[in-house]
Amino acid sequence: MDQPFKFYEFFCGGGMARAGLGDNWECVFANDIDEKKAETYKANWGEGEIKIDDIANIKTENLSNLADLTWASFPCQDLSSAGAGAGLEGARSGTFWPFWNLIKKLRLENRVPKIVVLENVCGALTSHEGKDFSAICSAMQKENYLFGAVVVDAVDFLPQSRPRLFFIGVQKDLIDVSFLTRTEPDSKWHTKALINAQKKLEEAAKKSWIWWNIPYPTKRKSTLLDCIEENPESVKWHSPAETQRLISLMSRANLSKLQKVKEFGKPKIGTIYKRTRKDENGNKVQRAEVRFDNISGCLRTPSGGSSRQIMIFVDNESVQSRLISARETARLMGLPDDYRLPPKYNDAYHLTGDGVVVPVVSFLSRHVLEPILLNLKKSQKAA
């Protein structure tokens, strides 16, 4: 490739989309409002491209370069099933609209990005009975994008269960993308919830909708064990009493899982999340839910103690536990060990738990984004 493709990275966090896009891409502008995340961005990528500010304050004059791609992993809290349900009207997920206003203004200036990728939680499919999903699709259609969406689970690439929704749009009349599309949805990438949400779109948006045709990834080889730090510095082991307290929060079904692993005869690693559940009398109680399938639960931002994932190590009757380490969270997001994390544990966990999975970005770039732009270059040269 002669020159790298250029991109904007909005809601950039620590630059995980940038890490996933790799050397074939050049970031010409990045933005985030979170100063702690921005400091980590600078530590890993330098200070040249990032502007720390509210998205509502960003002007097109700040975007001095043309971009082939705009990547935006906009806040998910108001679209998440765990959130308050405010959707795109919420203070956090609603930041989509000032971001999209920038896209609209770039169009008026004849420099709208060729491709736009939006990433968010799958709750965006059902938020406000699908109206938020429809609003995003209509916004893309009105700015002349052909677009579709896929649901990609990080578990295909890393030992973490983390399904996420990716909208991918390309400017109409830019290039024929039929070589990357299919006439019907593919159950691998197009879930029932996505198909149902697409059916509810307005007719104009449906006419701009495409089903992306993406190859299946190769079988993942890594397991949870590959992400474990032998001697983590960011966390300490629980005391025997703390571990026993954790076990006491398990339901019968989860205690049965633990007992089977004890009888397995070989050391095994699992993960635990504390969750609020109803008991047999309908009362809300705290439960410790464990899994031993060599896969991490979905990382989340540590808004409270229950949001921090716990590691449990079982060797016959010996059971030890501790919080997941900061570096382990980074590994579960696909970040290399030379990636510089914030020195404070909660800041590091917040950064990784709020990010986009690096190999998923790489996969989409390799199989969708780069083929579009490479074919565009070929057609322009041929002309």
Results as ranks from 00 to 15, higher is better:
Ile136Lys: 06
Gly305Gln: 09
Lys268Arg: 14
Ala330Lys: 04
Val290Gln: 04
Ala149Thr: 10
Lys377Glu: 14
Tyr273Ser: 04
Met333Tyr: 04
Met1Phe: 11
Gly304Met: 09
His238Val: 00
Pro342Cys: 08
Phe5His: 10
Thr243Arg: 03
Leu373Trp: 11
Leu341Cys: 06
Val151Pro: 07
Glu289Tyr: 12
Ser303Ala: 13
Leu180Trp: 11
Arg164Asn: 06
Phe292Asn: 03
Ala135Ile: 02
Phe166Ala: 02
Leu299His: 10
Pro232Arg: 05
Lys172Arg: 12
Gln244Glu: 15
Pro342Arg: 10
Glu263Pro: 00
Pro359Met: 08
Thr126Gln: 12
Arg182Thr: 14
Ala43Ser: 15
Gly20Lys: 06
Asn281Gly: 09
Ala86Tyr: 10
Pro343Leu: 08
Thr243Phe: 04
Val360Asp: 05
Ala139Ile: 06
Glu119Gly: 05
Ile210Phe: 13
Arg252His: 09
Tyr349Glu: 06
Pro185Lys: 05
Ile269Gly: 00
Pro343Thr: 13
Tyr339Pro: 03
Leu364Lys: 06
Cys27Gly: 01
Ala139Thr: 05
Phe264Cys: 08
Glu9Ile: 00
Asn281Leu: 12
Met1Gly: 11
Ile195Met: 06
Ser307Asn: 14
Phe147Thr: 02
Thr60Leu: 01
Ser187Met: 04
Gln309Cys: 15
Lys199Ala: 10
Lys192Trp: 04
Lys207Ser: 15
Pro371Gln: 08
